[in-house]
């Protein structure tokens, strides 16, 4: 009866109440920051004494913020594309290949997700310093692709495992070349997995702070690095405005994801 929603009695009231509290707790910072970004108090007083758009004006007037956002978008897009392509090939090998050490290989490719980022950050920083990639876009993209790769491999392998290979074989029997079969049958069938991989690996780079802090140079900063710097300096409401835009972006991504998934899963 503990797993019958309708038979929980007072326990249901307690659990539902607690769930609502936790949902409120999870929602609180997000809503709060959005409200604050429209508040007129320099000192982030809440409730704000008045409403204003000036923090957004300051944000858009400052080329450093715009540059940082563009840099982030560029790096995240490139890392996501690389991670998805490399991850797609790797996933085929991991799921379809029959060779010893497949599990070990999978473990290795997923390790960047598990290893504390700070360890990878200083390691990559030292290494890239030596090979001259520190502070460069290429260096950024390589490091972020490494970090994003697990987020691409997990959904793609999951989708491939759920795909019946005999359908691909059937296409080949019908006269398709193996390449055609893969492009026309298998890839469309696992597109939800590929799409998830793209979103996750984009976010993995877009939100990444630790490696970025080490890799950044005065001329190459991602958005998280810029925010990080502002946070360490002061709690300026401009950060709230930037953060609200990020929340808006997340919401858009969620909506697009939900719509696309609904459409793709038909």
């Amino acid at each position: 009866m503990l797993l019958d929603y309708n038979r929980l009695g007072w326990l249901r009231v307690a659990l539902a109440g607690f769930t609502m509290l936790v949902a409120a707790f999870l929602l609180l910072p997000v809503v709060f920051i959005v409200l604050l970004s429209f508040g007129s108090s320099r000192w982030l007083a809440f409730p704000p004494p008045g409403w204003t758009l000036k923090w957004y004006q300051q944000l858009f007037a400052d080329p450093a913020w715009i540059d940082a956002a563009l840099t982030s978008a560029k790096i995240a897009a490139m890392s996501a594309i690389l991670a998805v392509v490399i991850g797609l090939f790797a996933s085929f090998a991991l799921v379809r290949g029959e060779f010893r050490g497949r599990q070990v290989l999978r473990g290795l490719l997923l390790t960047p997700m598990v290893l504390p980022v700070v360890v990878f950050a200083i390691a990559a920083y030292a290494f890239f310093l030596r090979i001259g990639l520190a502070g460069t876009t290429v260096g950024f993209v390589i490091a972020h692709t490494v970090l994003a790769l697990p987020f691409a491999i997990i959904p793609i392998t999951a989708a491939l495992e759920g795909f019946d290979k005999s359908i691909e074989d059937a296409a080949i029997v019908c006269g398709a070349s193996p390449l055609q079969a893969r492009l026309r049958i298998t890839l469309p069938s696992i597109r939800i997995g590929i799409f998830s991989a793209a979103i996750f690996s984009f976010l993995a780079s877009w939100d990444e702070v630790v490696v970025a802090i080490f890799m950044a140079s005065p001329t190459l900063q991602t958005l998280p690095v810029k925010i990080w710097g502002s946070l360490r300096a002061d709690l300026s409401p401009v950060v709230a405005a930037a953060s609200s835009l990020l929340v808006g972006l997340t919401l858009c991504l969620m909506i697009v994801t939900a719509l696309l998934r609904r459409k793709l899963s038909r």
């Binding site: 060779f99 490719l109 960047p112 490091a143 491999i153």
Partner: peptide
């Protein structure tokens, strides 16, 4: 069947394993 993993292996090996081991 392992060929597809090659790019991933190179990436992770060269830019993850090597730096971490060096560290």
């Amino acid at each position: 069947g392992s060929g597809g993993a090659l790019p991933a292996l190179v990436l992770v090996g060269l830019f993850f394993v090597v730096p971490v081991v060096a560290l």
